[in-house]
Write a protein that binds this DNA or RNA. Structure first.
Lengths: 258, 258
DNA sequence: CTTGACCTTGACGCTGGGTCAACCCTCCAT
DNA sequence: ATGGAGGGTTGACCCAGCGTCAAGGTCAAG
Protein backbone atom coordinates (compact mmCIF):
# COMPACT_ATOMS: atom_id res chain seq x y z
CA UNK A 1 0.00 0.00 0.00
CA UNK A 2 1.11 3.52 -0.79
CA UNK A 3 0.84 6.86 0.95
CA UNK A 4 -0.23 9.91 -0.97
CA UNK A 5 3.32 11.15 -1.44
CA UNK A 6 4.49 7.78 -2.72
CA UNK A 7 1.61 7.74 -5.15
CA UNK A 8 2.43 11.25 -6.24
CA UNK A 9 6.10 10.42 -6.70
CA UNK A 10 5.43 7.32 -8.78
CA UNK A 11 3.04 9.22 -11.02
CA UNK A 12 5.26 12.27 -11.22
CA UNK A 13 2.80 14.78 -9.76
CA UNK A 14 2.58 16.78 -6.56
CA UNK A 15 0.65 15.71 -3.47
CA UNK A 16 -1.42 18.84 -3.85
CA UNK A 17 -2.43 17.84 -7.35
CA UNK A 18 -3.59 14.41 -6.15
CA UNK A 19 -5.80 15.99 -3.50
CA UNK A 20 -7.10 18.40 -6.10
CA UNK A 21 -8.09 15.47 -8.32
CA UNK A 22 -9.92 13.94 -5.38
CA UNK A 23 -11.88 17.12 -4.85
CA UNK A 24 -12.96 17.34 -8.45
CA UNK A 25 -13.75 13.61 -8.40
CA UNK A 26 -11.28 12.78 -11.11
CA UNK A 27 -9.57 10.26 -8.87
CA UNK A 28 -11.76 8.30 -6.45
CA UNK A 29 -11.11 8.80 -2.76
CA UNK A 30 -9.27 5.69 -1.54
CA UNK A 31 -9.65 4.07 1.86
CA UNK A 32 -7.92 5.44 4.93
CA UNK A 33 -5.78 3.72 7.52
CA UNK A 34 -6.60 3.98 11.21
CA UNK A 35 -4.86 7.34 11.46
CA UNK A 36 -6.80 8.84 8.60
CA UNK A 37 -4.06 8.65 5.96
CA UNK A 38 -5.17 7.76 2.46
CA UNK A 39 -3.88 4.40 1.28
CA UNK A 40 -3.48 3.71 -2.43
CA UNK A 41 -2.85 0.66 -4.54
CA UNK A 42 -1.07 0.37 -7.87
CA UNK A 43 -4.34 0.89 -9.73
CA UNK A 44 -4.40 4.45 -8.47
CA UNK A 45 -0.90 4.98 -9.87
CA UNK A 46 -2.08 3.85 -13.28
CA UNK A 47 -5.17 6.02 -13.19
CA UNK A 48 -3.15 8.98 -12.08
CA UNK A 49 -0.56 8.52 -14.83
CA UNK A 50 -3.33 8.38 -17.39
CA UNK A 51 -4.85 11.56 -16.03
CA UNK A 52 -1.50 13.33 -16.18
CA UNK A 53 -0.86 12.08 -19.70
CA UNK A 54 -4.06 13.68 -20.91
CA UNK A 55 -3.62 16.81 -18.81
CA UNK A 56 -0.06 17.29 -20.06
CA UNK A 57 -1.39 17.01 -23.58
CA UNK A 58 -3.57 20.01 -22.90
CA UNK A 59 -6.82 18.31 -22.04
CA UNK A 60 -8.66 20.41 -19.42
CA UNK A 61 -9.20 18.44 -16.24
CA UNK A 62 -12.93 18.90 -16.65
CA UNK A 63 -12.75 16.82 -19.84
CA UNK A 64 -10.23 14.20 -18.76
CA UNK A 65 -12.86 11.92 -17.26
CA UNK A 66 -14.92 11.72 -20.44
CA UNK A 67 -11.86 11.06 -22.57
CA UNK A 68 -10.71 8.28 -20.25
CA UNK A 69 -14.12 6.65 -20.55
CA UNK A 70 -14.47 7.30 -24.27
CA UNK A 71 -14.21 4.77 -27.06
CA UNK A 72 -11.79 5.42 -29.92
CA UNK A 73 -14.24 7.54 -31.91
CA UNK A 74 -15.38 9.88 -29.18
CA UNK A 75 -11.76 10.06 -28.09
CA UNK A 76 -10.64 11.23 -31.51
CA UNK A 77 -13.49 13.71 -31.68
CA UNK A 78 -12.76 15.11 -28.24
CA UNK A 79 -9.07 15.41 -29.01
CA UNK A 80 -9.83 17.30 -32.21
CA UNK A 81 -12.03 19.74 -30.36
CA UNK A 82 -9.36 20.35 -27.77
CA UNK A 83 -6.82 20.89 -30.50
CA UNK A 84 -9.13 23.46 -32.04
CA UNK A 85 -9.24 25.29 -28.71
CA UNK A 86 -5.46 25.19 -28.50
CA UNK A 87 -5.09 26.59 -31.98
CA UNK A 88 -7.55 29.37 -31.23
CA UNK A 89 -5.63 30.26 -28.09
CA UNK A 90 -2.35 30.32 -30.00
CA UNK A 91 -3.85 32.58 -32.64
CA UNK A 92 -5.22 34.85 -29.94
CA UNK A 93 -1.80 35.16 -28.37
CA UNK A 94 -0.22 35.84 -31.73
CA UNK A 95 -2.72 38.62 -32.33
CA UNK A 96 -1.90 39.98 -28.91
CA UNK A 97 1.78 39.89 -29.77
CA UNK A 98 1.33 41.87 -32.96
CA UNK A 99 -0.75 44.48 -31.16
CA UNK A 100 1.98 44.72 -28.57
CA UNK A 101 4.54 45.15 -31.33
CA UNK A 102 2.55 47.98 -32.89
CA UNK A 103 2.25 49.59 -29.48
CA UNK A 104 6.02 49.47 -29.05
CA UNK A 105 6.60 50.71 -32.58
CA UNK A 106 5.26 54.11 -31.74
CA UNK A 107 1.47 54.29 -31.84
CA UNK A 108 1.77 56.06 -28.60
CA UNK A 109 -0.73 54.65 -26.13
CA UNK A 110 -4.10 54.42 -27.76
CA UNK A 111 -3.53 56.82 -30.61
CA UNK A 112 -3.36 55.87 -34.28
CA UNK A 113 -0.48 57.24 -36.32
CA UNK A 114 -2.62 59.79 -38.14
CA UNK A 115 -3.48 61.53 -34.87
CA UNK A 116 0.12 61.45 -33.69
CA UNK A 117 1.12 63.13 -36.96
CA UNK A 118 -1.58 65.76 -36.54
CA UNK A 119 -0.45 66.55 -33.00
CA UNK A 120 3.12 66.81 -34.27
CA UNK A 121 1.97 69.35 -36.84
CA UNK A 122 0.35 71.43 -34.11
CA UNK A 123 3.54 71.18 -32.11
CA UNK A 124 5.42 72.39 -35.18
CA UNK A 125 3.17 75.44 -35.30
CA UNK A 126 4.39 76.39 -31.84
CA UNK A 127 1.35 75.24 -29.89
CA UNK A 128 2.17 74.73 -26.23
CA UNK A 129 2.57 71.22 -24.79
CA UNK A 130 -0.21 71.88 -22.30
CA UNK A 131 -2.71 72.51 -25.06
CA UNK A 132 -1.44 69.53 -27.06
CA UNK A 133 -2.03 67.35 -24.01
CA UNK A 134 -5.64 68.45 -23.88
CA UNK A 135 -6.07 67.85 -27.61
CA UNK A 136 -4.43 64.43 -27.30
CA UNK A 137 -6.80 63.34 -24.55
CA UNK A 138 -9.77 64.38 -26.64
CA UNK A 139 -8.42 62.48 -29.63
CA UNK A 140 -7.88 59.39 -27.49
CA UNK A 141 -11.56 59.45 -26.63
CA UNK A 142 -12.62 60.09 -30.21
CA UNK A 143 -10.38 57.34 -31.58
CA UNK A 144 -11.85 54.91 -29.07
CA UNK A 145 -15.38 55.95 -29.87
CA UNK A 146 -15.26 55.95 -33.68
CA UNK A 147 -12.06 54.22 -34.77
CA UNK A 148 -13.39 53.79 -38.30
CA UNK A 149 -13.85 57.55 -38.76
CA UNK A 150 -10.73 58.80 -37.12
CA UNK A 151 -8.56 59.00 -40.23
CA UNK A 152 -11.12 60.94 -42.25
CA UNK A 153 -11.76 63.31 -39.36
CA UNK A 154 -8.06 63.95 -39.02
CA UNK A 155 -7.79 64.52 -42.77
CA UNK A 156 -10.38 67.30 -42.42
CA UNK A 157 -8.42 68.85 -39.60
CA UNK A 158 -5.32 68.84 -41.78
CA UNK A 159 -7.25 70.69 -44.49
CA UNK A 160 -8.37 73.27 -41.96
CA UNK A 161 -4.76 73.85 -40.99
CA UNK A 162 -4.04 74.89 -44.56
CA UNK A 163 -6.07 78.02 -43.81
CA UNK A 164 -3.92 80.82 -42.29
CA UNK A 165 -6.86 81.86 -40.10
CA UNK A 166 -6.91 78.41 -38.47
CA UNK A 167 -3.16 78.63 -37.87
CA UNK A 168 -3.64 81.98 -36.24
CA UNK A 169 -6.48 80.60 -34.17
CA UNK A 170 -4.26 77.86 -32.78
CA UNK A 171 -1.42 80.22 -32.07
CA UNK A 172 -3.87 82.18 -29.94
CA UNK A 173 -5.44 79.12 -28.30
CA UNK A 174 -1.99 77.76 -27.50
CA UNK A 175 -1.72 79.85 -24.36
CA UNK A 176 -5.43 80.32 -23.81
CA UNK A 177 -5.78 77.65 -21.16
CA UNK A 178 -4.33 80.08 -18.63
CA UNK A 179 -6.29 83.12 -19.69
CA UNK A 180 -8.60 84.59 -17.08
CA UNK A 181 -12.33 84.50 -17.81
CA UNK A 182 -12.43 88.13 -18.96
CA UNK A 183 -9.32 88.23 -21.06
CA UNK A 184 -10.02 90.49 -24.06
CA UNK A 185 -8.27 88.05 -26.41
CA UNK A 186 -11.22 85.71 -26.02
CA UNK A 187 -13.21 88.07 -28.21
CA UNK A 188 -10.44 87.93 -30.76
CA UNK A 189 -10.65 84.15 -30.76
CA UNK A 190 -14.40 84.33 -31.20
CA UNK A 191 -13.96 86.66 -34.16
CA UNK A 192 -11.61 84.29 -35.92
CA UNK A 193 -13.83 81.34 -35.21
CA UNK A 194 -16.86 83.09 -36.55
CA UNK A 195 -15.05 83.97 -39.76
CA UNK A 196 -13.98 80.36 -40.16
CA UNK A 197 -17.47 79.07 -39.46
CA UNK A 198 -19.10 81.40 -41.93
CA UNK A 199 -16.69 80.29 -44.60
CA UNK A 200 -17.35 76.66 -43.71
CA UNK A 201 -21.09 77.17 -43.93
CA UNK A 202 -20.69 78.79 -47.34
CA UNK A 203 -18.66 75.82 -48.48
CA UNK A 204 -21.47 73.56 -47.28
CA UNK A 205 -19.24 71.85 -44.74
CA UNK A 206 -21.47 72.34 -41.73
CA UNK A 207 -24.44 70.31 -40.71
CA UNK A 208 -23.35 67.13 -42.43
CA UNK A 209 -23.82 64.11 -40.22
CA UNK A 210 -20.49 63.15 -38.68
CA UNK A 211 -21.55 59.86 -37.12
CA UNK A 212 -20.55 60.87 -33.63
CA UNK A 213 -22.95 60.48 -30.72
CA UNK A 214 -24.44 63.78 -29.45
CA UNK A 215 -23.86 63.05 -25.80
CA UNK A 216 -20.31 62.14 -26.54
CA UNK A 217 -19.84 65.52 -28.18
CA UNK A 218 -21.28 67.11 -25.03
CA UNK A 219 -18.73 65.22 -22.97
CA UNK A 220 -15.87 66.55 -25.06
CA UNK A 221 -17.24 70.08 -24.81
CA UNK A 222 -17.64 69.87 -21.07
CA UNK A 223 -14.03 68.82 -20.60
CA UNK A 224 -12.97 71.78 -22.69
CA UNK A 225 -15.02 74.04 -20.44
CA UNK A 226 -13.50 72.53 -17.33
CA UNK A 227 -9.97 72.83 -18.59
CA UNK A 228 -9.92 76.59 -18.83
CA UNK A 229 -11.55 79.52 -17.06
CA UNK A 230 -12.18 81.41 -20.28
CA UNK A 231 -13.78 78.57 -22.17
CA UNK A 232 -17.30 79.12 -20.87
CA UNK A 233 -17.17 82.77 -21.83
CA UNK A 234 -15.94 81.96 -25.33
CA UNK A 235 -18.86 79.60 -25.82
CA UNK A 236 -21.25 82.22 -24.47
CA UNK A 237 -19.97 84.84 -26.88
CA UNK A 238 -20.31 82.47 -29.80
CA UNK A 239 -23.80 81.52 -28.73
CA UNK A 240 -24.85 85.18 -28.69
CA UNK A 241 -23.72 85.32 -32.29
CA UNK A 242 -25.72 82.24 -33.23
CA UNK A 243 -23.21 79.38 -32.88
CA UNK A 244 -23.27 76.55 -30.44
CA UNK A 245 -20.74 73.94 -29.46
CA UNK A 246 -17.03 73.49 -29.69
CA UNK A 247 -16.20 69.97 -30.75
CA UNK A 248 -18.96 70.23 -33.30
CA UNK A 249 -20.09 73.79 -33.97
CA UNK A 250 -23.60 74.36 -35.32
CA UNK A 251 -25.81 77.26 -36.29
CA UNK A 252 -28.43 77.89 -33.60
CA UNK A 253 -31.90 78.10 -35.23
CA UNK A 254 -33.22 81.64 -35.07
CA UNK A 255 -36.40 80.90 -33.11
CA UNK A 256 -34.37 79.32 -30.34
CA UNK A 257 -32.31 82.43 -29.83
CA UNK A 258 -34.78 84.44 -27.79
CA UNK B 1 -20.35 64.13 -15.12
CA UNK B 2 -20.61 60.48 -15.99
CA UNK B 3 -22.00 57.45 -14.23
CA UNK B 4 -20.02 54.26 -14.13
CA UNK B 5 -21.97 52.71 -16.98
CA UNK B 6 -21.49 55.77 -19.20
CA UNK B 7 -17.80 55.70 -18.46
CA UNK B 8 -17.68 52.02 -19.28
CA UNK B 9 -19.53 52.53 -22.55
CA UNK B 10 -17.29 55.35 -23.71
CA UNK B 11 -14.18 53.33 -22.94
CA UNK B 12 -15.60 50.13 -24.38
CA UNK B 13 -15.40 48.02 -21.25
CA UNK B 14 -17.90 46.52 -18.83
CA UNK B 15 -19.03 48.13 -15.61
CA UNK B 16 -17.68 45.14 -13.77
CA UNK B 17 -14.24 45.68 -15.25
CA UNK B 18 -14.21 49.29 -14.09
CA UNK B 19 -14.99 48.23 -10.56
CA UNK B 20 -12.32 45.58 -10.81
CA UNK B 21 -9.77 48.22 -11.76
CA UNK B 22 -10.83 50.25 -8.75
CA UNK B 23 -10.23 47.28 -6.50
CA UNK B 24 -6.75 46.68 -7.82
CA UNK B 25 -6.04 50.43 -7.65
CA UNK B 26 -5.41 50.72 -11.35
CA UNK B 27 -8.07 53.41 -11.65
CA UNK B 28 -8.45 55.85 -8.73
CA UNK B 29 -11.77 55.82 -6.92
CA UNK B 30 -13.66 58.93 -8.01
CA UNK B 31 -15.96 61.03 -5.87
CA UNK B 32 -19.53 60.00 -5.17
CA UNK B 33 -22.72 61.95 -5.54
CA UNK B 34 -25.09 62.34 -2.63
CA UNK B 35 -26.64 58.95 -3.34
CA UNK B 36 -23.33 57.14 -3.31
CA UNK B 37 -22.94 56.73 -7.07
CA UNK B 38 -19.47 57.15 -8.48
CA UNK B 39 -19.14 60.23 -10.71
CA UNK B 40 -16.46 60.38 -13.37
CA UNK B 41 -15.00 63.07 -15.57
CA UNK B 42 -13.49 62.79 -19.01
CA UNK B 43 -10.04 62.25 -17.52
CA UNK B 44 -11.24 58.92 -16.24
CA UNK B 45 -12.34 57.96 -19.74
CA UNK B 46 -8.86 58.70 -21.06
CA UNK B 47 -7.16 56.77 -18.26
CA UNK B 48 -9.47 53.84 -18.79
CA UNK B 49 -8.88 53.76 -22.53
CA UNK B 50 -5.14 53.78 -21.94
CA UNK B 51 -5.47 50.90 -19.50
CA UNK B 52 -7.50 48.90 -22.00
CA UNK B 53 -5.07 49.63 -24.79
CA UNK B 54 -2.24 48.13 -22.78
CA UNK B 55 -4.34 45.26 -21.46
CA UNK B 56 -5.58 44.39 -24.95
CA UNK B 57 -1.98 44.31 -26.09
CA UNK B 58 -1.31 41.57 -23.59
CA UNK B 59 0.08 43.58 -20.72
CA UNK B 60 -0.96 41.93 -17.45
CA UNK B 61 -3.03 44.32 -15.35
CA UNK B 62 -0.43 44.06 -12.62
CA UNK B 63 2.09 45.71 -14.93
CA UNK B 64 -0.16 48.28 -16.60
CA UNK B 65 0.41 50.89 -13.92
CA UNK B 66 4.18 50.83 -14.23
CA UNK B 67 4.02 51.03 -18.02
CA UNK B 68 1.66 54.01 -17.88
CA UNK B 69 4.07 55.79 -15.59
CA UNK B 70 7.17 54.71 -17.47
CA UNK B 71 9.34 56.83 -19.68
CA UNK B 72 10.09 55.70 -23.24
CA UNK B 73 13.04 53.51 -22.23
CA UNK B 74 11.43 51.61 -19.38
CA UNK B 75 8.37 51.34 -21.56
CA UNK B 76 10.30 49.64 -24.34
CA UNK B 77 12.04 47.37 -21.87
CA UNK B 78 8.81 46.38 -20.21
CA UNK B 79 7.14 45.71 -23.53
CA UNK B 80 10.02 43.49 -24.60
CA UNK B 81 9.77 41.46 -21.43
CA UNK B 82 6.05 40.99 -21.90
CA UNK B 83 6.63 39.93 -25.47
CA UNK B 84 9.12 37.35 -24.22
CA UNK B 85 6.46 35.97 -21.90
CA UNK B 86 3.98 35.84 -24.74
CA UNK B 87 6.41 33.97 -26.97
CA UNK B 88 7.14 31.49 -24.19
CA UNK B 89 3.44 30.89 -23.69
CA UNK B 90 2.93 30.34 -27.40
CA UNK B 91 5.79 27.86 -27.52
CA UNK B 92 4.35 26.04 -24.51
CA UNK B 93 0.98 25.74 -26.22
CA UNK B 94 2.61 24.52 -29.40
CA UNK B 95 4.43 21.85 -27.42
CA UNK B 96 1.15 20.89 -25.84
CA UNK B 97 -0.43 20.64 -29.27
CA UNK B 98 2.23 18.32 -30.58
CA UNK B 99 1.88 16.09 -27.53
CA UNK B 100 -1.84 16.02 -28.12
CA UNK B 101 -1.25 15.10 -31.75
CA UNK B 102 0.98 12.20 -30.75
CA UNK B 103 -1.64 11.08 -28.27
CA UNK B 104 -4.28 11.06 -30.98
CA UNK B 105 -1.96 9.32 -33.42
CA UNK B 106 -2.02 6.14 -31.41
CA UNK B 107 0.32 6.16 -28.44
CA UNK B 108 -2.56 4.81 -26.54
CA UNK B 109 -2.86 6.67 -23.29
CA UNK B 110 0.52 6.86 -21.66
CA UNK B 111 2.20 4.04 -23.51
CA UNK B 112 5.02 4.45 -26.01
CA UNK B 113 4.72 2.63 -29.31
CA UNK B 114 7.29 -0.02 -28.41
CA UNK B 115 5.15 -1.22 -25.51
CA UNK B 116 2.00 -1.21 -27.61
CA UNK B 117 3.81 -3.38 -30.15
CA UNK B 118 4.98 -5.73 -27.44
CA UNK B 119 1.47 -6.11 -26.05
CA UNK B 120 0.22 -6.77 -29.57
CA UNK B 121 2.77 -9.55 -29.89
CA UNK B 122 1.51 -11.12 -26.68
CA UNK B 123 -2.03 -10.82 -27.98
CA UNK B 124 -0.87 -12.54 -31.16
CA UNK B 125 0.41 -15.43 -29.06
CA UNK B 126 -3.10 -15.98 -27.78
CA UNK B 127 -2.65 -14.38 -24.38
CA UNK B 128 -6.00 -13.39 -22.84
CA UNK B 129 -7.12 -9.76 -22.74
CA UNK B 130 -7.40 -9.86 -18.97
CA UNK B 131 -3.73 -10.74 -18.62
CA UNK B 132 -2.76 -8.16 -21.24
CA UNK B 133 -4.61 -5.52 -19.24
CA UNK B 134 -2.55 -6.35 -16.19
CA UNK B 135 0.67 -6.26 -18.19
CA UNK B 136 -0.35 -2.98 -19.76
CA UNK B 137 -0.96 -1.35 -16.39
CA UNK B 138 2.46 -2.50 -15.22
CA UNK B 139 4.08 -1.10 -18.34
CA UNK B 140 2.29 2.21 -17.88
CA UNK B 141 3.89 2.51 -14.47
CA UNK B 142 7.30 1.44 -15.74
CA UNK B 143 7.17 3.82 -18.69
CA UNK B 144 6.28 6.68 -16.35
CA UNK B 145 9.04 5.76 -13.93
CA UNK B 146 11.95 5.21 -16.35
CA UNK B 147 10.91 6.60 -19.74
CA UNK B 148 14.53 6.61 -20.94
CA UNK B 149 14.93 2.88 -20.34
CA UNK B 150 11.59 1.66 -21.60
CA UNK B 151 12.68 0.88 -25.17
CA UNK B 152 15.71 -1.17 -24.14
CA UNK B 153 13.69 -3.05 -21.54
CA UNK B 154 11.09 -3.90 -24.14
CA UNK B 155 13.80 -4.97 -26.55
CA UNK B 156 14.96 -7.50 -23.95
CA UNK B 157 11.42 -8.79 -23.56
CA UNK B 158 11.19 -9.27 -27.29
CA UNK B 159 14.40 -11.33 -27.20
CA UNK B 160 12.94 -13.47 -24.44
CA UNK B 161 9.89 -14.12 -26.56
CA UNK B 162 12.17 -15.68 -29.19
CA UNK B 163 12.64 -18.53 -26.70
CA UNK B 164 9.92 -21.20 -27.05
CA UNK B 165 9.98 -21.74 -23.30
CA UNK B 166 8.97 -18.14 -22.74
CA UNK B 167 6.16 -18.51 -25.24
CA UNK B 168 4.96 -21.59 -23.41
CA UNK B 169 5.21 -19.72 -20.12
CA UNK B 170 2.93 -16.97 -21.39
CA UNK B 171 0.44 -19.41 -22.85
CA UNK B 172 0.19 -20.89 -19.37
CA UNK B 173 0.08 -17.52 -17.57
CA UNK B 174 -2.60 -16.32 -19.96
CA UNK B 175 -5.35 -17.95 -17.96
CA UNK B 176 -3.50 -18.07 -14.65
CA UNK B 177 -5.20 -15.05 -13.13
CA UNK B 178 -8.21 -17.20 -12.38
CA UNK B 179 -6.37 -20.22 -11.06
CA UNK B 180 -7.05 -21.13 -7.46
CA UNK B 181 -4.14 -20.91 -5.03
CA UNK B 182 -3.46 -24.63 -5.15
CA UNK B 183 -3.75 -25.25 -8.86
CA UNK B 184 -1.11 -27.86 -9.83
CA UNK B 185 -0.24 -25.91 -12.98
CA UNK B 186 1.47 -23.33 -10.77
CA UNK B 187 4.28 -25.84 -10.22
CA UNK B 188 4.54 -26.23 -13.97
CA UNK B 189 4.92 -22.47 -14.33
CA UNK B 190 7.59 -22.46 -11.65
CA UNK B 191 9.46 -25.19 -13.48
CA UNK B 192 9.54 -23.27 -16.73
CA UNK B 193 10.56 -20.10 -14.98
CA UNK B 194 13.38 -21.82 -13.19
CA UNK B 195 14.69 -23.24 -16.46
CA UNK B 196 14.58 -19.82 -18.02
CA UNK B 197 16.29 -18.21 -15.07
CA UNK B 198 19.08 -20.75 -14.95
CA UNK B 199 19.72 -20.17 -18.62
CA UNK B 200 19.70 -16.45 -18.08
CA UNK B 201 22.16 -16.71 -15.23
CA UNK B 202 24.48 -18.83 -17.37
CA UNK B 203 24.29 -16.19 -20.07
CA UNK B 204 25.25 -13.60 -17.45
CA UNK B 205 22.00 -11.74 -17.88
CA UNK B 206 21.03 -11.65 -14.24
CA UNK B 207 22.18 -9.32 -11.55
CA UNK B 208 23.05 -6.46 -13.88
CA UNK B 209 21.84 -3.14 -12.60
CA UNK B 210 18.61 -2.19 -14.38
CA UNK B 211 18.28 1.31 -13.04
CA UNK B 212 14.86 0.73 -11.54
CA UNK B 213 14.13 1.70 -7.96
CA UNK B 214 13.84 -1.28 -5.55
CA UNK B 215 10.67 -0.11 -3.87
CA UNK B 216 9.10 0.45 -7.23
CA UNK B 217 9.87 -3.16 -8.13
CA UNK B 218 8.20 -4.21 -4.86
CA UNK B 219 5.12 -2.22 -5.86
CA UNK B 220 4.90 -4.01 -9.20
CA UNK B 221 5.34 -7.37 -7.47
CA UNK B 222 2.67 -6.61 -4.91
CA UNK B 223 0.13 -5.73 -7.57
CA UNK B 224 0.90 -9.02 -9.28
CA UNK B 225 0.30 -10.84 -5.99
CA UNK B 226 -2.98 -9.00 -5.46
CA UNK B 227 -4.24 -9.68 -8.93
CA UNK B 228 -4.31 -13.45 -8.63
CA UNK B 229 -4.88 -15.96 -5.84
CA UNK B 230 -2.09 -18.26 -7.09
CA UNK B 231 0.55 -15.58 -7.41
CA UNK B 232 1.72 -15.70 -3.82
CA UNK B 233 2.14 -19.47 -3.99
CA UNK B 234 4.15 -19.20 -7.19
CA UNK B 235 6.51 -16.74 -5.55
CA UNK B 236 6.78 -18.99 -2.50
CA UNK B 237 7.69 -22.01 -4.61
CA UNK B 238 10.33 -20.03 -6.47
CA UNK B 239 11.72 -18.70 -3.22
CA UNK B 240 12.10 -22.26 -1.87
CA UNK B 241 14.20 -22.97 -4.93
CA UNK B 242 16.40 -19.95 -4.38
CA UNK B 243 14.78 -17.23 -6.50
CA UNK B 244 13.10 -14.11 -5.35
CA UNK B 245 10.92 -11.56 -7.06
CA UNK B 246 8.83 -11.40 -10.17
CA UNK B 247 9.32 -8.16 -11.95
CA UNK B 248 13.04 -8.54 -11.31
CA UNK B 249 14.03 -12.08 -10.36
CA UNK B 250 17.23 -12.58 -8.37
CA UNK B 251 19.20 -15.42 -6.85
CA UNK B 252 18.70 -15.50 -3.09
CA UNK B 253 22.11 -15.66 -1.40
CA UNK B 254 22.60 -19.08 0.21
CA UNK B 255 23.12 -17.86 3.78
CA UNK B 256 19.76 -16.07 3.67
CA UNK B 257 17.87 -19.22 2.79
CA UNK B 258 17.76 -20.83 6.24
C1' DC C 1 10.93 11.61 24.93
C1' DT C 2 12.01 14.32 21.32
C1' DT C 3 12.84 15.39 16.68
C1' DG C 4 11.87 15.66 12.01
C1' DA C 5 9.36 14.03 8.28
C1' DC C 6 5.02 13.11 6.69
C1' DC C 7 0.04 13.22 6.96
C1' DT C 8 -4.61 15.69 7.58
C1' DT C 9 -8.16 19.55 6.56
C1' DG C 10 -8.97 24.29 5.52
C1' DA C 11 -8.31 28.52 3.44
C1' DC C 12 -6.30 32.17 0.58
C1' DG C 13 -3.75 33.54 -3.75
C1' DC C 14 -3.31 34.04 -8.72
C1' DT C 15 -5.99 36.29 -13.72
C1' DG C 16 -9.65 38.96 -15.25
C1' DG C 17 -13.36 39.57 -14.47
C1' DG C 18 -18.80 36.93 -14.85
C1' DT C 19 -22.69 36.27 -12.39
C1' DC C 20 -25.80 36.39 -8.83
C1' DA C 21 -27.99 38.51 -4.54
C1' DA C 22 -29.94 41.98 -1.89
C1' DC C 23 -30.78 46.41 -1.57
C1' DC C 24 -30.83 51.66 -2.86
C1' DC C 25 -31.98 55.63 -6.09
C1' DT C 26 -34.45 58.11 -9.66
C1' DC C 27 -37.95 58.76 -12.83
C1' DC C 28 -42.38 58.19 -14.84
C1' DA C 29 -47.19 57.14 -14.91
C1' DT C 30 -51.12 56.52 -12.37
C1' DA D 1 -48.30 59.26 -2.92
C1' DT D 2 -47.37 55.12 -4.72
C1' DG D 3 -45.84 51.45 -7.48
C1' DG D 4 -43.01 49.63 -11.08
C1' DA D 5 -39.18 49.92 -14.37
C1' DG D 6 -34.67 50.45 -14.92
C1' DG D 7 -30.82 52.31 -13.48
C1' DG D 8 -27.23 52.22 -9.51
C1' DT D 9 -24.48 50.25 -5.11
C1' DT D 10 -21.59 46.77 -2.39
C1' DG D 11 -20.52 42.03 -1.39
C1' DA D 12 -19.52 37.44 -2.27
C1' DC D 13 -18.94 33.28 -4.78
C1' DC D 14 -17.35 31.15 -9.39
C1' DC D 15 -13.96 29.51 -13.32
C1' DA D 16 -8.47 26.44 -13.83
C1' DG D 17 -5.04 24.28 -11.63
C1' DC D 18 -3.00 24.02 -8.45
C1' DG D 19 0.98 26.65 -4.87
C1' DT D 20 1.51 27.87 -0.47
C1' DC D 21 0.81 28.66 4.14
C1' DA D 22 -1.52 27.41 8.75
C1' DA D 23 -2.34 24.54 12.53
C1' DG D 24 -2.24 20.36 14.15
C1' DG D 25 -2.19 14.81 14.30
C1' DT D 26 0.90 10.51 13.24
C1' DC D 27 4.93 7.80 12.62
C1' DA D 28 9.63 5.91 12.78
C1' DA D 29 14.05 6.61 14.54
C1' DG D 30 17.55 8.14 17.87
Amino acid sequence: MLTISQLATYAGVTVRAVRHYHRIRLLPEPGRDRSGYRTYDAGAVVRLIRIRTLADAGVPLARVQELLDAGPEEFAGGVQEIDKDLRAEIRRLQGTRSRLARLAAGEHLALPQSVVDYLDRLRGLGVEEQYIDMERDAWIMIAAQVPHLIDSVIAKKHEELDDPDTVKLYSLLSGALDWPAHDPRIVEVADIMERLMIRAVEAGEVGTEDGIDDRFVDLLDSTMVESSPGAARLLAILEERGWRGWTRIERVPAERLK
